[in-house]
């Protein structure tokens, strides 16, 4: 017995294949766009850094959505809360460390 057994499963398989393709294509486009910024020199200075950061965040979102299948469904609230709590912890730890260390760096100058 192989493959989908009924119409529902056909639809499910089609959706899951589509998710993988969408994810791969979007990730590829975002990667190429991010590398294009320093390669072409179209953007410079702060605009370039902001563009790279935005593309990176977008690609991370794409990976979470299409490869890890994280979404906003009601039945996934526990998992979503876990991820959001991690984002909070990461923001506090990274933001706090960088703030303190940069402040220290300025005072040492």
């Amino acid at each position: 017995m192989t493959g989908p057994r009924n119409e529902e499963e056909h639809e499910e398989l089609r959706r899951e294949r589509r998710a993988l393709t969408i994810g791969a294509v979007q990730a590829l486009i975002l990667t190429c766009a991010a590398f294009a910024i320093p390669a072409t020199g179209l953007l410079t200075g702060l605009a370039a850094l902001a563009g790279i950061a935005l593309l990176g965040v977008l690609q991370i979102a794409v990976h979470f959505r299409w490869f890890l299948h994280l979404d906003l469904r009601r039945s996934h609230r526990h998992d979503l809360q876990l991820v959001l709590f991690t984002v909070l912890i990461v923001t506090l730890m990274v933001g706090g460390s960088i703030w303190i260390l940069f402040d220290l760096h300025d005072r040492m100058m």
Binding site: T31, I37, A48, L49, I52, A53, G56, F67
Partner: peptide, 22 residues
């Protein structure tokens, strides 16, 4: 495996792309 890819995207952005840009 998918999660490691996400970490790599962050490395690409913060280490390499920011590194050559600034």
């Amino acid at each position: 495996w998918h999660m490691l890819d996400i970490v790599w995207i962050a490395i690409i952005t913060v280490v390499y792309l920011f590194g050559v840009q600034s």
